[in-house]
Design a protein around this nucleic acid. Structure first.
Lengths: 244, 244
DNA sequence: CGATAAGTGGAGAGACCTATCCACTTGGCC
DNA sequence: GGCCAAGTGGATAGGTCTCTCCACTTATCG
Protein backbone atom coordinates (compact mmCIF):
# COMPACT_ATOMS: atom_id res chain seq x y z
CA UNK A 1 0.00 0.00 0.00
CA UNK A 2 1.06 3.56 -0.63
CA UNK A 3 3.73 2.82 -3.19
CA UNK A 4 4.74 6.41 -3.88
CA UNK A 5 7.38 7.76 -1.57
CA UNK A 6 4.89 10.37 -0.39
CA UNK A 7 6.88 13.28 1.03
CA UNK A 8 7.58 16.76 -0.28
CA UNK A 9 5.56 18.58 -2.97
CA UNK A 10 6.02 16.00 -5.73
CA UNK A 11 3.64 17.91 -8.02
CA UNK A 12 0.48 18.64 -6.07
CA UNK A 13 -1.77 16.79 -8.52
CA UNK A 14 -3.74 19.89 -9.53
CA UNK A 15 -0.73 21.63 -11.03
CA UNK A 16 -0.03 19.24 -13.89
CA UNK A 17 -1.33 20.82 -17.09
CA UNK A 18 -0.19 24.29 -16.16
CA UNK A 19 1.94 26.55 -18.26
CA UNK A 20 5.45 27.01 -16.88
CA UNK A 21 4.95 30.54 -15.55
CA UNK A 22 1.56 29.70 -14.15
CA UNK A 23 2.96 26.81 -12.26
CA UNK A 24 5.74 28.90 -10.82
CA UNK A 25 3.14 31.35 -9.59
CA UNK A 26 1.07 28.58 -8.11
CA UNK A 27 4.04 27.22 -6.24
CA UNK A 28 4.95 30.60 -4.90
CA UNK A 29 1.39 31.14 -3.75
CA UNK A 30 1.35 27.94 -1.77
CA UNK A 31 4.74 28.63 -0.30
CA UNK A 32 3.84 32.14 0.76
CA UNK A 33 0.47 31.03 2.09
CA UNK A 34 2.13 28.40 4.23
CA UNK A 35 4.43 30.98 5.76
CA UNK A 36 1.73 33.53 6.39
CA UNK A 37 -0.70 31.01 7.82
CA UNK A 38 2.04 29.70 10.05
CA UNK A 39 2.74 32.89 11.84
CA UNK A 40 -0.41 34.93 11.54
CA UNK A 41 -3.02 32.23 11.69
CA UNK A 42 -5.61 31.24 9.15
CA UNK A 43 -7.24 34.61 8.80
CA UNK A 44 -4.67 36.46 6.79
CA UNK A 45 -6.60 38.05 3.94
CA UNK A 46 -6.31 36.53 0.52
CA UNK A 47 -5.10 39.91 -0.72
CA UNK A 48 -2.08 39.73 1.56
CA UNK A 49 -1.18 36.31 0.26
CA UNK A 50 -1.49 37.52 -3.31
CA UNK A 51 0.64 40.55 -2.60
CA UNK A 52 3.39 38.57 -0.94
CA UNK A 53 3.36 36.06 -3.75
CA UNK A 54 3.48 38.99 -6.15
CA UNK A 55 0.47 37.95 -8.15
CA UNK A 56 -2.91 39.56 -8.63
CA UNK A 57 -5.83 38.41 -6.57
CA UNK A 58 -7.43 37.03 -9.68
CA UNK A 59 -4.55 34.65 -10.19
CA UNK A 60 -4.81 33.43 -6.66
CA UNK A 61 -8.51 32.83 -7.04
CA UNK A 62 -8.18 31.04 -10.36
CA UNK A 63 -5.80 28.57 -8.84
CA UNK A 64 -7.77 28.25 -5.62
CA UNK A 65 -11.44 29.05 -6.19
CA UNK A 66 -12.01 29.49 -2.50
CA UNK A 67 -9.89 30.31 0.49
CA UNK A 68 -10.73 26.99 2.00
CA UNK A 69 -9.27 25.18 -0.98
CA UNK A 70 -6.01 27.03 -0.46
CA UNK A 71 -5.97 26.15 3.19
CA UNK A 72 -6.64 22.54 2.37
CA UNK A 73 -3.86 22.40 -0.19
CA UNK A 74 -1.40 24.15 2.09
CA UNK A 75 -1.98 21.79 4.95
CA UNK A 76 -2.40 18.60 3.03
CA UNK A 77 1.27 17.75 3.31
CA UNK A 78 1.48 18.96 6.87
CA UNK A 79 -1.21 16.45 7.63
CA UNK A 80 0.75 13.84 5.77
CA UNK A 81 3.69 14.66 7.98
CA UNK A 82 1.49 13.86 10.97
CA UNK A 83 0.59 10.56 9.43
CA UNK A 84 4.22 9.70 8.94
CA UNK A 85 4.95 10.64 12.53
CA UNK A 86 2.42 8.03 13.42
CA UNK A 87 4.05 5.51 11.12
CA UNK A 88 7.35 6.09 12.88
CA UNK A 89 5.65 5.61 16.21
CA UNK A 90 4.16 2.32 15.11
CA UNK A 91 7.56 1.21 13.89
CA UNK A 92 9.13 1.85 17.28
CA UNK A 93 9.81 -1.41 19.11
CA UNK A 94 8.80 0.27 22.37
CA UNK A 95 5.14 1.22 21.92
CA UNK A 96 5.04 3.51 24.94
CA UNK A 97 8.01 5.47 23.70
CA UNK A 98 6.43 5.56 20.26
CA UNK A 99 3.21 6.83 21.79
CA UNK A 100 4.96 9.60 23.70
CA UNK A 101 7.17 10.82 20.91
CA UNK A 102 4.31 10.77 18.43
CA UNK A 103 2.27 13.01 20.68
CA UNK A 104 5.21 15.24 21.37
CA UNK A 105 6.00 15.65 17.70
CA UNK A 106 2.48 16.41 16.59
CA UNK A 107 1.97 18.88 19.39
CA UNK A 108 5.20 20.60 18.51
CA UNK A 109 4.05 20.96 14.95
CA UNK A 110 0.82 22.42 16.22
CA UNK A 111 2.56 24.83 18.56
CA UNK A 112 5.00 26.08 15.98
CA UNK A 113 2.47 26.74 13.28
CA UNK A 114 -0.60 28.81 14.09
CA UNK A 115 -2.36 27.99 10.87
CA UNK A 116 -1.60 24.33 11.05
CA UNK A 117 -3.11 24.17 14.44
CA UNK A 118 -6.27 25.89 13.29
CA UNK A 119 -6.59 23.92 10.11
CA UNK A 120 -5.88 20.69 11.89
CA UNK A 121 -8.51 21.21 14.50
CA UNK A 122 -10.89 22.80 12.10
CA UNK A 123 -11.81 21.58 8.68
CA UNK A 124 -10.98 19.31 5.84
CA UNK A 125 -14.56 19.11 4.63
CA UNK A 126 -13.75 18.05 1.09
CA UNK A 127 -10.13 17.04 0.58
CA UNK A 128 -10.87 13.51 -0.54
CA UNK A 129 -7.41 12.05 -0.34
CA UNK A 130 -6.98 13.59 3.10
CA UNK A 131 -10.08 11.85 4.30
CA UNK A 132 -8.52 8.53 3.50
CA UNK A 133 -5.31 9.40 5.28
CA UNK A 134 -7.30 10.58 8.22
CA UNK A 135 -9.05 7.27 8.71
CA UNK A 136 -5.75 5.49 8.40
CA UNK A 137 -4.31 7.80 11.03
CA UNK A 138 -7.16 7.19 13.42
CA UNK A 139 -6.84 3.45 13.03
CA UNK A 140 -3.10 3.69 13.42
CA UNK A 141 -3.37 5.64 16.63
CA UNK A 142 -5.91 3.17 17.98
CA UNK A 143 -3.43 0.41 17.30
CA UNK A 144 -0.64 2.36 18.94
CA UNK A 145 -2.84 2.91 21.96
CA UNK A 146 -3.64 -0.77 22.18
CA UNK A 147 0.01 -1.76 22.07
CA UNK A 148 1.03 0.89 24.59
CA UNK A 149 -1.59 -0.40 26.99
CA UNK A 150 -0.31 -3.90 26.44
CA UNK A 151 3.08 -2.91 27.78
CA UNK A 152 1.38 -1.72 30.94
CA UNK A 153 2.83 1.77 30.73
CA UNK A 154 -0.28 3.46 29.35
CA UNK A 155 -3.20 3.61 31.75
CA UNK A 156 -6.04 1.26 30.85
CA UNK A 157 -8.77 3.86 30.86
CA UNK A 158 -7.10 5.98 28.19
CA UNK A 159 -9.19 6.03 25.06
CA UNK A 160 -7.91 6.95 21.61
CA UNK A 161 -10.37 9.82 21.49
CA UNK A 162 -8.38 11.38 24.31
CA UNK A 163 -6.01 12.42 21.56
CA UNK A 164 -8.71 14.79 20.39
CA UNK A 165 -8.79 16.23 23.88
CA UNK A 166 -5.08 16.69 23.85
CA UNK A 167 -4.97 18.26 20.42
CA UNK A 168 -7.69 20.73 21.24
CA UNK A 169 -6.11 21.58 24.55
CA UNK A 170 -2.79 22.06 22.87
CA UNK A 171 -4.38 24.28 20.27
CA UNK A 172 -5.48 26.56 23.08
CA UNK A 173 -1.84 27.25 23.82
CA UNK A 174 -1.19 30.10 21.46
CA UNK A 175 1.15 32.73 22.80
CA UNK A 176 2.39 35.98 21.36
CA UNK A 177 5.68 34.48 20.37
CA UNK A 178 6.20 31.10 18.80
CA UNK A 179 8.88 30.28 21.32
CA UNK A 180 6.57 30.85 24.24
CA UNK A 181 3.91 28.73 22.60
CA UNK A 182 6.41 25.98 22.01
CA UNK A 183 7.65 26.02 25.56
CA UNK A 184 4.12 26.11 26.90
CA UNK A 185 3.07 23.27 24.68
CA UNK A 186 6.00 21.19 25.77
CA UNK A 187 5.19 21.65 29.39
CA UNK A 188 1.51 20.89 28.85
CA UNK A 189 2.35 17.75 26.93
CA UNK A 190 4.77 16.67 29.62
CA UNK A 191 2.08 17.09 32.22
CA UNK A 192 -0.43 15.17 30.18
CA UNK A 193 1.91 12.34 29.27
CA UNK A 194 2.68 12.06 32.92
CA UNK A 195 -1.03 11.78 33.59
CA UNK A 196 -1.39 9.12 30.93
CA UNK A 197 1.04 6.77 32.63
CA UNK A 198 -0.49 3.71 34.19
CA UNK A 199 0.90 4.27 37.70
CA UNK A 200 -1.64 6.71 39.03
CA UNK A 201 -4.91 5.32 37.86
CA UNK A 202 -7.11 7.68 39.81
CA UNK A 203 -10.44 7.18 38.17
CA UNK A 204 -11.31 9.59 35.39
CA UNK A 205 -14.72 11.17 34.88
CA UNK A 206 -16.36 10.35 31.56
CA UNK A 207 -14.95 7.92 29.03
CA UNK A 208 -15.23 9.73 25.68
CA UNK A 209 -16.35 13.31 25.47
CA UNK A 210 -14.94 14.34 22.10
CA UNK A 211 -14.78 12.23 19.03
CA UNK A 212 -11.41 12.04 17.32
CA UNK A 213 -13.02 11.46 13.97
CA UNK A 214 -14.96 14.70 14.27
CA UNK A 215 -12.05 16.73 15.52
CA UNK A 216 -10.02 15.75 12.49
CA UNK A 217 -12.84 16.40 10.09
CA UNK A 218 -15.84 18.52 10.98
CA UNK A 219 -15.86 22.14 9.98
CA UNK A 220 -15.34 24.27 13.03
CA UNK A 221 -13.34 27.41 13.70
CA UNK A 222 -12.05 27.88 10.14
CA UNK A 223 -12.01 31.31 8.45
CA UNK A 224 -15.74 30.74 8.02
CA UNK A 225 -17.72 34.00 8.56
CA UNK A 226 -18.21 33.16 12.23
CA UNK A 227 -21.36 32.07 14.09
CA UNK A 228 -23.46 34.93 12.81
CA UNK A 229 -26.08 36.20 15.15
CA UNK A 230 -27.39 38.93 12.92
CA UNK A 231 -30.13 38.87 10.34
CA UNK A 232 -30.23 35.11 10.32
CA UNK A 233 -33.58 33.37 10.74
CA UNK A 234 -34.54 32.54 14.29
CA UNK A 235 -33.69 36.01 15.44
CA UNK A 236 -37.13 37.63 15.54
CA UNK A 237 -37.45 41.39 15.98
CA UNK A 238 -39.67 40.91 19.03
CA UNK A 239 -42.12 43.75 19.43
CA UNK A 240 -41.80 45.99 22.42
CA UNK A 241 -43.29 49.31 21.41
CA UNK A 242 -41.67 52.32 22.89
CA UNK A 243 -41.04 55.64 21.20
CA UNK A 244 -42.65 56.45 17.85
CA UNK B 1 -10.68 45.21 52.80
CA UNK B 2 -13.51 44.77 50.39
CA UNK B 3 -16.26 45.83 52.75
CA UNK B 4 -19.09 45.68 50.22
CA UNK B 5 -20.74 42.28 49.96
CA UNK B 6 -19.58 42.12 46.35
CA UNK B 7 -21.85 39.68 44.56
CA UNK B 8 -24.67 40.19 42.10
CA UNK B 9 -25.28 43.34 40.02
CA UNK B 10 -25.57 45.73 42.97
CA UNK B 11 -25.69 48.72 40.62
CA UNK B 12 -22.79 48.43 38.22
CA UNK B 13 -21.33 51.80 39.18
CA UNK B 14 -21.78 53.34 35.75
CA UNK B 15 -25.56 53.10 35.89
CA UNK B 16 -26.17 55.45 38.79
CA UNK B 17 -27.40 58.75 37.38
CA UNK B 18 -29.56 57.14 34.73
CA UNK B 19 -33.19 57.85 34.13
CA UNK B 20 -35.45 54.97 35.14
CA UNK B 21 -36.20 53.76 31.63
CA UNK B 22 -32.63 54.15 30.52
CA UNK B 23 -31.42 52.06 33.35
CA UNK B 24 -33.92 49.32 32.59
CA UNK B 25 -32.61 49.25 29.06
CA UNK B 26 -29.05 49.14 30.23
CA UNK B 27 -29.76 46.20 32.47
CA UNK B 28 -31.52 44.33 29.72
CA UNK B 29 -28.60 44.92 27.39
CA UNK B 30 -26.12 43.46 29.81
CA UNK B 31 -28.35 40.53 30.56
CA UNK B 32 -28.92 39.74 26.89
CA UNK B 33 -25.27 40.22 26.06
CA UNK B 34 -24.28 37.77 28.74
CA UNK B 35 -26.58 35.13 27.31
CA UNK B 36 -25.51 35.64 23.73
CA UNK B 37 -21.83 35.74 24.55
CA UNK B 38 -22.22 32.60 26.56
CA UNK B 39 -23.53 30.43 23.83
CA UNK B 40 -22.31 32.03 20.63
CA UNK B 41 -18.95 33.34 21.73
CA UNK B 42 -17.67 36.86 21.81
CA UNK B 43 -18.25 37.65 18.19
CA UNK B 44 -21.98 38.09 18.13
CA UNK B 45 -22.57 41.39 16.35
CA UNK B 46 -23.59 44.37 18.42
CA UNK B 47 -26.67 44.63 16.24
CA UNK B 48 -27.84 41.22 17.41
CA UNK B 49 -27.43 42.20 21.02
CA UNK B 50 -29.38 45.39 20.44
CA UNK B 51 -32.14 43.51 18.67
CA UNK B 52 -32.49 40.93 21.39
CA UNK B 53 -32.49 43.60 24.04
CA UNK B 54 -35.09 45.43 21.98
CA UNK B 55 -33.21 48.68 21.84
CA UNK B 56 -31.69 50.58 18.95
CA UNK B 57 -28.03 50.23 18.21
CA UNK B 58 -27.52 53.85 19.19
CA UNK B 59 -28.75 53.12 22.69
CA UNK B 60 -26.40 50.23 23.02
CA UNK B 61 -23.48 52.34 21.89
CA UNK B 62 -24.33 55.27 24.12
CA UNK B 63 -24.22 52.99 27.14
CA UNK B 64 -21.15 51.11 25.95
CA UNK B 65 -19.06 53.28 23.65
CA UNK B 66 -17.19 50.27 22.38
CA UNK B 67 -17.85 46.58 22.13
CA UNK B 68 -14.93 45.91 24.35
CA UNK B 69 -16.46 47.97 27.12
CA UNK B 70 -19.57 45.84 26.93
CA UNK B 71 -17.56 42.67 27.09
CA UNK B 72 -15.66 44.01 30.07
CA UNK B 73 -18.82 44.96 31.90
CA UNK B 74 -20.48 41.66 31.16
CA UNK B 75 -17.62 39.60 32.44
CA UNK B 76 -16.62 41.75 35.35
CA UNK B 77 -18.86 39.84 37.73
CA UNK B 78 -17.99 36.52 36.17
CA UNK B 79 -14.43 37.35 36.96
CA UNK B 80 -15.44 38.25 40.45
CA UNK B 81 -17.04 34.83 40.72
CA UNK B 82 -13.66 33.36 39.92
CA UNK B 83 -12.07 35.40 42.61
CA UNK B 84 -14.57 34.16 45.13
CA UNK B 85 -13.94 30.59 44.02
CA UNK B 86 -10.38 31.28 44.97
CA UNK B 87 -11.42 32.69 48.31
CA UNK B 88 -13.33 29.52 49.02
CA UNK B 89 -10.31 27.49 48.09
CA UNK B 90 -8.09 29.46 50.44
CA UNK B 91 -10.63 28.94 53.20
CA UNK B 92 -10.55 25.18 52.79
CA UNK B 93 -8.63 23.54 55.62
CA UNK B 94 -7.20 21.04 53.14
CA UNK B 95 -5.15 23.13 50.69
CA UNK B 96 -4.80 20.36 48.12
CA UNK B 97 -8.53 19.82 48.03
CA UNK B 98 -9.00 23.58 47.78
CA UNK B 99 -6.53 23.70 44.94
CA UNK B 100 -8.29 20.94 43.03
CA UNK B 101 -11.81 22.19 43.45
CA UNK B 102 -10.81 25.75 42.60
CA UNK B 103 -9.35 24.59 39.33
CA UNK B 104 -12.30 22.36 38.63
CA UNK B 105 -14.77 25.14 39.26
CA UNK B 106 -13.06 27.74 37.15
CA UNK B 107 -12.58 25.34 34.29
CA UNK B 108 -16.23 24.40 34.45
CA UNK B 109 -17.20 28.03 34.22
CA UNK B 110 -14.94 28.34 31.23
CA UNK B 111 -16.33 25.26 29.53
CA UNK B 112 -19.93 26.22 30.03
CA UNK B 113 -19.61 29.76 28.74
CA UNK B 114 -17.98 30.34 25.38
CA UNK B 115 -17.72 34.06 25.83
CA UNK B 116 -16.41 33.85 29.34
CA UNK B 117 -13.66 31.62 28.19
CA UNK B 118 -12.69 33.99 25.42
CA UNK B 119 -12.92 37.11 27.54
CA UNK B 120 -11.07 35.49 30.38
CA UNK B 121 -8.17 34.43 28.27
CA UNK B 122 -8.27 37.52 26.17
CA UNK B 123 -8.49 41.06 27.37
CA UNK B 124 -9.30 43.35 30.21
CA UNK B 125 -7.08 46.12 28.93
CA UNK B 126 -8.76 48.93 30.83
CA UNK B 127 -11.22 47.76 33.48
CA UNK B 128 -9.46 49.40 36.37
CA UNK B 129 -11.30 47.73 39.20
CA UNK B 130 -10.79 44.37 37.52
CA UNK B 131 -7.08 44.95 37.40
CA UNK B 132 -7.01 45.18 41.15
CA UNK B 133 -9.02 42.00 41.58
CA UNK B 134 -6.74 40.28 39.15
CA UNK B 135 -3.62 41.00 41.11
CA UNK B 136 -5.36 39.84 44.24
CA UNK B 137 -6.35 36.64 42.45
CA UNK B 138 -2.85 35.98 41.25
CA UNK B 139 -1.44 36.48 44.70
CA UNK B 140 -4.16 34.32 46.16
CA UNK B 141 -3.42 31.49 43.80
CA UNK B 142 0.27 31.74 44.53
CA UNK B 143 -0.55 31.39 48.21
CA UNK B 144 -2.81 28.42 47.53
CA UNK B 145 -0.04 26.81 45.51
CA UNK B 146 2.44 27.34 48.30
CA UNK B 147 0.15 25.74 50.86
CA UNK B 148 -0.71 22.83 48.60
CA UNK B 149 2.95 22.12 48.10
CA UNK B 150 3.47 22.27 51.85
CA UNK B 151 1.09 19.39 52.31
CA UNK B 152 3.23 17.37 49.96
CA UNK B 153 0.36 16.54 47.65
CA UNK B 154 1.21 19.08 44.95
CA UNK B 155 4.41 18.41 43.07
CA UNK B 156 7.23 20.78 43.96
CA UNK B 157 8.00 21.86 40.42
CA UNK B 158 4.51 23.17 39.81
CA UNK B 159 4.57 26.93 39.33
CA UNK B 160 1.58 29.23 39.73
CA UNK B 161 1.95 30.27 36.11
CA UNK B 162 1.00 26.74 35.18
CA UNK B 163 -2.53 27.87 35.85
CA UNK B 164 -2.20 30.00 32.73
CA UNK B 165 -1.25 26.87 30.85
CA UNK B 166 -4.23 25.05 32.19
CA UNK B 167 -6.66 27.85 31.44
CA UNK B 168 -5.47 28.26 27.91
CA UNK B 169 -5.53 24.54 27.32
CA UNK B 170 -9.01 24.34 28.72
CA UNK B 171 -10.12 27.18 26.49
CA UNK B 172 -9.10 25.07 23.52
CA UNK B 173 -11.79 22.59 24.50
CA UNK B 174 -14.76 24.08 22.72
CA UNK B 175 -17.15 21.56 21.29
CA UNK B 176 -20.31 21.95 19.27
CA UNK B 177 -22.49 21.34 22.28
CA UNK B 178 -21.94 22.75 25.72
CA UNK B 179 -22.36 19.31 27.25
CA UNK B 180 -19.59 17.85 25.16
CA UNK B 181 -17.33 20.75 26.07
CA UNK B 182 -18.12 20.29 29.72
CA UNK B 183 -17.43 16.58 29.65
CA UNK B 184 -14.24 17.13 27.69
CA UNK B 185 -13.10 19.82 30.06
CA UNK B 186 -13.75 17.62 33.05
CA UNK B 187 -11.69 14.82 31.65
CA UNK B 188 -8.86 17.15 30.70
CA UNK B 189 -8.84 18.68 34.15
CA UNK B 190 -8.87 15.27 35.75
CA UNK B 191 -5.86 14.26 33.69
CA UNK B 192 -4.01 17.43 34.55
CA UNK B 193 -4.79 17.33 38.26
CA UNK B 194 -3.53 13.80 38.25
CA UNK B 195 -0.35 15.04 36.66
CA UNK B 196 -0.01 17.77 39.26
CA UNK B 197 0.12 15.34 42.13
CA UNK B 198 3.46 14.98 43.81
CA UNK B 199 3.77 11.22 43.36
CA UNK B 200 5.09 11.09 39.84
CA UNK B 201 7.64 13.81 39.71
CA UNK B 202 9.04 12.94 36.31
CA UNK B 203 11.00 16.04 35.49
CA UNK B 204 9.19 18.67 33.47
CA UNK B 205 10.73 20.64 30.61
CA UNK B 206 10.79 24.39 31.15
CA UNK B 207 9.77 26.12 34.35
CA UNK B 208 7.58 29.03 33.23
CA UNK B 209 6.52 29.41 29.64
CA UNK B 210 3.43 31.57 29.98
CA UNK B 211 2.93 34.33 32.38
CA UNK B 212 -0.25 34.21 34.41
CA UNK B 213 -0.33 37.96 34.73
CA UNK B 214 -0.32 38.36 30.97
CA UNK B 215 -2.90 35.71 30.32
CA UNK B 216 -5.32 37.44 32.63
CA UNK B 217 -4.63 40.83 31.17
CA UNK B 218 -2.97 41.32 27.82
CA UNK B 219 -5.16 41.91 24.81
CA UNK B 220 -5.21 38.82 22.67
CA UNK B 221 -7.92 36.98 20.76
CA UNK B 222 -10.74 39.42 21.52
CA UNK B 223 -13.20 40.55 18.87
CA UNK B 224 -10.41 42.85 17.78
CA UNK B 225 -10.26 43.15 13.95
CA UNK B 226 -7.92 40.13 13.75
CA UNK B 227 -4.19 40.04 13.03
CA UNK B 228 -4.56 41.98 9.81
CA UNK B 229 -2.09 41.10 7.13
CA UNK B 230 -3.43 43.49 4.54
CA UNK B 231 -2.48 47.06 3.81
CA UNK B 232 -0.69 47.44 7.09
CA UNK B 233 2.84 48.82 7.09
CA UNK B 234 5.59 46.28 6.76
CA UNK B 235 3.82 44.62 3.89
CA UNK B 236 5.71 46.10 0.94
CA UNK B 237 4.36 45.66 -2.59
CA UNK B 238 7.65 44.12 -3.70
CA UNK B 239 8.29 44.78 -7.37
CA UNK B 240 8.37 41.86 -9.72
CA UNK B 241 7.38 43.20 -13.09
CA UNK B 242 5.42 40.88 -15.27
CA UNK B 243 2.56 41.74 -17.57
CA UNK B 244 1.69 45.31 -18.32
C1' DC C 1 -49.41 70.75 32.73
C1' DG C 2 -45.77 72.05 30.14
C1' DA C 3 -40.66 72.81 29.45
C1' DT C 4 -36.49 70.65 28.77
C1' DA C 5 -32.71 67.71 29.48
C1' DA C 6 -32.17 62.97 28.92
C1' DG C 7 -32.94 59.28 26.05
C1' DT C 8 -34.06 56.98 21.64
C1' DG C 9 -34.15 54.57 16.83
C1' DG C 10 -32.40 53.73 12.44
C1' DA C 11 -29.90 55.24 8.41
C1' DG C 12 -25.40 55.16 6.84
C1' DA C 13 -20.18 56.14 6.99
C1' DG C 14 -16.01 53.74 6.81
C1' DA C 15 -13.26 49.35 7.11
C1' DC C 16 -12.56 44.74 5.92
C1' DC C 17 -12.91 40.57 3.48
C1' DT C 18 -14.12 37.02 -0.06
C1' DA C 19 -14.89 36.37 -4.61
C1' DT C 20 -15.94 37.85 -9.73
C1' DC C 21 -15.30 40.12 -14.21
C1' DC C 22 -12.99 41.58 -18.13
C1' DA C 23 -9.71 43.91 -21.07
C1' DC C 24 -5.03 43.06 -21.66
C1' DT C 25 -0.31 39.98 -22.01
C1' DT C 26 2.52 36.31 -22.96
C1' DG C 27 4.46 31.44 -23.28
C1' DG C 28 4.97 27.95 -26.43
C1' DC C 29 3.94 25.56 -30.63
C1' DC C 30 3.73 26.08 -35.95
C1' DG D 1 8.09 35.54 -36.37
C1' DG D 2 3.36 35.19 -35.43
C1' DC D 3 -0.97 33.22 -33.39
C1' DC D 4 -3.97 32.30 -29.70
C1' DA D 5 -5.24 29.65 -25.76
C1' DA D 6 -3.68 30.18 -21.35
C1' DG D 7 -2.69 33.35 -18.01
C1' DT D 8 -2.80 37.88 -15.78
C1' DG D 9 -3.85 42.27 -12.81
C1' DG D 10 -6.86 45.50 -10.73
C1' DA D 11 -11.40 47.43 -10.19
C1' DT D 12 -15.36 46.34 -7.97
C1' DA D 13 -19.57 43.88 -6.41
C1' DG D 14 -21.63 42.38 -2.37
C1' DG D 15 -21.31 40.85 2.28
C1' DT D 16 -20.03 41.78 7.33
C1' DC D 17 -18.95 44.44 11.14
C1' DT D 18 -18.23 48.50 14.41
C1' DC D 19 -19.45 52.87 15.45
C1' DT D 20 -21.60 57.97 14.42
C1' DC D 21 -25.15 61.34 13.51
C1' DC D 22 -29.36 63.61 14.01
C1' DA D 23 -34.26 64.42 14.08
C1' DC D 24 -37.59 62.78 17.15
C1' DT D 25 -39.79 61.14 21.88
C1' DT D 26 -40.48 60.95 26.75
C1' DA D 27 -39.52 60.94 31.84
C1' DT D 28 -39.26 64.03 35.29
C1' DC D 29 -39.54 68.28 37.97
C1' DG D 30 -41.40 72.84 38.99
Amino acid sequence: MRAKTSRMPAVPDAAVGLRADARQNRDRIVEVARELFADRGLDVPMAAIARHAQVGIATLYRRFPTKESLVTEVFADQFEACVSVLDDALADPDPWRGFCTAIEKVCTMQAVDRGFSAAFIAAFPDAVDIEQERDRAIQGFAELTRRAKETGRLRADFVPDDLALLLMANSGIIAESTEAALAASRRLVAYLLSAFRAEQAESLPSPAPLNLHDVLNSPASTPRPAPQAGTSPGDPPQSRSRNR
